[in-house]
Amino acid sequence: MRTIDLIFSGVYLTVLLIAFTQIGDLREISAASFTSAKLFPQLVLGLGLVMGVIETLRTLFLPSPADEGIGFRQTLAMTFRPRRMLLLALFVIYLAAIKPLGFLIATGIFCFATIALLTPRVTPVSLVIAALVSVCTLALIYQLLVVYLQAFLP
């Protein structure tokens, strides 16, 4: 887990440092001389950076705790499991498709495709169930939000 910890610290420090340099561009409020527009952001980001440095040093120099359960490779393999990545990819495509296709069509296709692709063994019956679930979801959303609550759909 040490490698993961170090990667986390690295990303964290980089992001906070970028933010910190950006804050320097803020201008001061002239009307209120007692407060500064930079004070709070710099306080927060500075403290955050200190935390990050402490944790990085701790991971580097202190012996890591005993629960060395899973190794780095295993964690990576778990992170990028095909099913997880498939779901994520489908969801990203779905969000991108809402605008061009319209919400109801995109949702129907997404729901059907996800169920069909995630089901371990695709059979005609599972496809019928997928279609049924998609239709029911759409009906529920439409009925609840549009008819009862008069909300807007994307």
Partner: peptide, 22 residues
């Protein structure tokens, strides 16, 4: 496999309805 897409859709709708923004 049935729960996951339905929940993702509901989350999408829910987030949109809060402020009507993609």
């Amino acid at each position: 496999q049935y729960v996951i897409p339905v929940l993702l859709i509901l989350c999408t709708v829910g987030c949109y309805a809060l402020n009507n923004r993609m």
